[in-house]
Structures are given as structure tokens and as C-alpha cells.
Simulated assay, not measured.
Amino acid sequence: MDQTPGVHQPHPPIVVLCGSTRHWDALAEANLYETAAGRIVLAPACDLKRSHPLWNDPAKADRLKQMLDDLHRKKIDLADEVLIVNPGGYIGDSTRSEIAYACSLGKPIRYTHPVQQ
């Protein structure tokens, strides 16, 4: 690969992971495989279902959830493609919303498991 100074090299594909944090381990596994495949991975970083001082207060948790939802949409904006992490075919309401948003942007979407009908 040419490393000429001042010449912009294309970046590896960027994939954003979407899915329920109830499947946190599956999200981590998908992150591992996508990274090993040479992709830049954007993923959820907070599991609000697990106790943490940042969101132990319900009012703080509500504000943080809204901010994280907005931030995740920005990750979708940046991504070249979307990977839906859906063990057992499960897709919750938040993930459905993210899929609709990604579709509105024309982003390619992959799934880790067949989708339940």
C-alpha cells in the first residue's frame, strides 16, 4: 500500500452495531468478529440494564438514554453499513427504530441471525 505523505488513504469499512443491550455478550462478540474482519466498529458503549453510578439516578438515566439514542443515530450516519445483532431473531422497538433510520439513509443492513416474522 502506498504511504506517500499527503496522499489520503481510504479507510476500512465502518460498521455500526445495533441491537438490544440485553444481548450485551452477543454485541461484544460481533464487535470482535467485525474488527477481526478489518472493519472499523461503532457500537453501543453503555448497558443501562447494568448498575453504574452514571445512571443509578432515574432522572439521570432518562437524560442519558435520550443522549445515547441521539449519539447512536450519529454513529449510523457515519457508518458505511449496519449490522443488526439479533440472537434468536429478536429485534426490539429501539432496534426497529434504528433500522428504519438506517433505511431512510440508504445504509446496507446485515443481520447476525434470521429475522423473526
Rank of each mutant, 00 (worst) to 15 (best):
residue 28 A to M: 14
residue 42 L to I: 13
residue 33 Y to I: 03
residue 62 D to S: 13
residue 62 D to G: 06
residue 94 S to E: 00
residue 57 D to L: 03
residue 27 L to C: 07
residue 52 H to W: 01
residue 26 A to G: 05
residue 95 T to V: 04
residue 102 A to V: 03
residue 22 R to D: 09
residue 61 A to F: 03
residue 2 D to W: 01
residue 47 D to H: 15
residue 73 R to T: 03
residue 53 P to W: 01
residue 43 A to K: 15
residue 38 G to K: 12
residue 12 P to N: 10
residue 78 L to P: 00
residue 82 V to A: 13
residue 87 P to Q: 10
residue 20 S to A: 01
residue 78 L to V: 05
residue 74 K to P: 00
residue 95 T to Y: 02
residue 8 H to R: 15
residue 104 S to A: 14
residue 103 C to R: 13
residue 23 H to I: 02
residue 108 P to T: 07
residue 48 L to M: 14
residue 56 N to S: 13
residue 77 D to Q: 07
residue 58 P to I: 11
residue 106 G to Q: 08
residue 11 H to M: 11
residue 64 L to H: 08
residue 32 L to W: 15
residue 85 V to M: 10
residue 89 G to F: 00
residue 69 D to K: 08
residue 8 H to C: 08
residue 114 P to H: 04
residue 102 A to Q: 06
residue 74 K to N: 06
residue 3 Q to N: 15
residue 25 D to A: 13
residue 12 P to A: 15
residue 109 I to S: 06
residue 29 E to N: 14
residue 44 P to D: 07
residue 65 K to C: 11
residue 83 L to I: 06
residue 9 Q to I: 12
residue 34 E to R: 13
residue 96 R to V: 02
residue 115 V to Q: 11
residue 67 M to W: 09
residue 89 G to D: 04
residue 50 R to L: 06
residue 29 E to Q: 15
residue 34 E to Q: 15
residue 73 R to V: 02
residue 68 L to I: 12
residue 47 D to E: 01
residue 48 L to Q: 04
residue 83 L to Q: 06
residue 74 K to E: 13
residue 63 R to E: 11
residue 103 C to P: 00
residue 2 D to K: 08
residue 88 G to E: 05
residue 43 A to S: 15
residue 101 Y to P: 01
residue 44 P to K: 06
residue 53 P to T: 04
residue 56 N to G: 12
residue 88 G to F: 02
residue 22 R to I: 05
residue 3 Q to C: 10
residue 31 N to C: 13
residue 41 V to Q: 10
residue 57 D to Q: 02
residue 63 R to D: 10
residue 61 A to P: 02
residue 28 A to G: 02
residue 28 A to R: 15
residue 73 R to W: 14
residue 49 K to H: 09
residue 38 G to H: 07
residue 77 D to K: 07
residue 5 P to H: 14
residue 61 A to R: 15
residue 47 D to R: 14
residue 114 P to G: 10
